[in-house]
Design a protein around this nucleic acid. Structure first.
Lengths: 142, 142
DNA sequence: AGGGGTAGTGGGGAATTGTGGATAACTATG
DNA sequence: CATAGTTATCCACAATTCCCCACTACCCCT
């Protein structure tokens, strides 16, 4: 289970450290385009399940076709190096507008990588609608 | 069952003592963003139930995606150290505006952590409008 | 009231983690 | 086949985190 929020730097070579707590659970990482201009990183097992769901989507619908292309064509194996870092391909860095400072978040069965500024914006936008949040929570029985 | 209100300090390293009465019941604590700018601390079991509900929400909807991100990325495993303290991550300290003096409260199945000043404000605000609240409650059948 | 125990707070040292750079291997190209 | 550019592996430092120990204050029991 991946949870938490970590601030890390991307160096000139495009490498970013995976938080130490995530490493054991990441046997064979896959990195790909995510939603809302961030990157997704999956465990190999999770990735295979997702891929199965993706290819099951109706080919006839234009938007599901586009979604499948986004996820599958964007994907890349990302083995951890000796220091526990992964290499972010150039085209994915551009997609997520990644500069030096980035944020790595754990979302249960996937990891996301955000540009720090974008992440802050996204968070404050969401926190601003705290009434919605309260509502959601009460729906979940909290 | 967590009940009561305790005043504790957060040291320079961001650690705060869990009230001794809560410790036995906290096997594997998870700390995360709460409502009204406080922090929630859950038992691992409670947390897993919540997490399960969270990941069941539709990934395709933007607002539930945002909500899930806030809750899961906001969460952190918080193992008790030898002295029964947990470590509050920097980003959660900021979220709850925590300074040195904090208040730890028990709310049956969860614990909350407040900045002391905020807690006082919240309490006096709530106590002042307790008649209104009582009326609302009667609508709920209490 | 005294004494033993527990709880809260603070700090020090060791191990781990994040980051940057250097060297080696590999690929492509003329 | 040689060379230049690119990619991968390795090494080293600095900062942070984690774990342990010590002190003080309070509570409870006798």
């Amino acid at each position: 289970m991946f949870i938490g929020e970590y601030k890390h730097n991307i160096d000139e070579k495009g490498r970013i450290a995976v938080p130490a707590k995530f490493r054991k659970q990441l046997k064979g990482a896959i990195i790909t385009r995510g939603l809302d201009r961030c990157l997704f990183v999956f465990n190999k097992i999770e990735w295979q399940e997702l891929a199965k769901k993706l290819i099951a989507l109706p080919l006839a619908q234009a938007n599901s076709r586009a979604f499948v292309r986004l996820m599958l064509a964007g994907a890349m194996e990302a083995p951890l190096d000796g220091q526990g870092r992964i290499l972010v391909p150039e085209y994915l860095k551009q997609y997520a507008a990644l500069k030096k400072q980035a944020v790595v978040t754990g979302l249960y069965n996937r990891i996301e990588i955000w540009d720090e500024i974008e992440w802050q914006k996204y968070k404050s936008k969401t926190e601003a609608s705290s009434d919605d949040i309260a509502e959601k929570l009460s729906e979940l029985g909290i």
